[in-house]
Amino acid sequence: MVAPLLELERVTKAFYGQKVLSEVSFSIQPGEVFGYIGPNGAGKSTTLKILAGLITQFDGTVNIAGANVKTERNAAHALIGFMPQSCGFQNWRTVDSALDTLGDLSGVPADVRARRIPALLERFDLLAARKKKVKELSGGMTQKLGLIQALLHEPKLLVLDEPLEGLDPPSRQMLKDVIRERQRAGTTVLFSSHILSDVEHVADRVGILNRGEVRTTGSIRDLTKSFGLPTEVDVWFSAAPADTGFLRASTNTDVAADDERKPNEWRLTLAAGANADAVIHALVERTLAGGGRLRKIGVAEPALDDLFARYILESDRSAAVGGGSRGN
């Protein structure tokens, strides 16, 4: 089995006696994209700051490619590219100067910097702003610059703290594309967000952090299952069948609840144990038999953010009664 690139073991951190992280443990395999999800104040930034070496006083162990961030700091941090939630640059610096210095400090040779900086600026549509002072950039541009500085030395592990926050939709899409590009190039990516739908289509696995504890880790699909929500099926007719009784929960035992959201648009909640494929097949047959025509039929995509909010609320409730579950 391949050794994990990042390993956190029982990481605990308290500020002024108040625990912010409580025995957080998880690992990330090389080349994986890991979404670190949690509501505001859950401890995401604290975890990432520990990885990046901004917080050095904590209990537990953090290893990056086998290098301990406490005892082999430089070796560990040569492997990381970190983009903080908000990036600060010296007022007098131009975009070029900021990147050149940060690249130099990361050990990137001058000739490589001279090639890589313009290429990255172009990738992020910042080449025209190359000679501008950083303080003249907009918030979104500064955020992109923050990402570029994290990519400059082509790190093995890219750690991004709320990278999508404050970006416009095209920039968000661009950033998701960059994450996928980096993954294809073999980079392991860990990024935090408080919005579950942000990590959808990007993260291979997610970890959910709440009140300083990692509640669960797994793929989005696994998490959706673990939320324990019933399967829903969307049925849209272009012409409804003569009798729609087979859609009703009162007459169809496979359907636990029915909701005609608009004329000819239904959402059916399947009963526990019902096989979605079999139900869809039956619905198609009965529609056609009843003279109806289908526009769309299929399993409804869960509203991830709603699920996440419910999950957090439930985990808060169980924590309040002392029964929080911790996954890994």
Partner: peptide, 16 residues
């Protein structure tokens, strides 16, 4: 002022 504006963070995270 540089600490308040989080300027140091980008230096500290580097292997120096």
């Amino acid at each position: 002022s540089e600490r308040q504006r989080k300027v140091f963070e980008l230096f500290i995270i580097r292997p120096i």
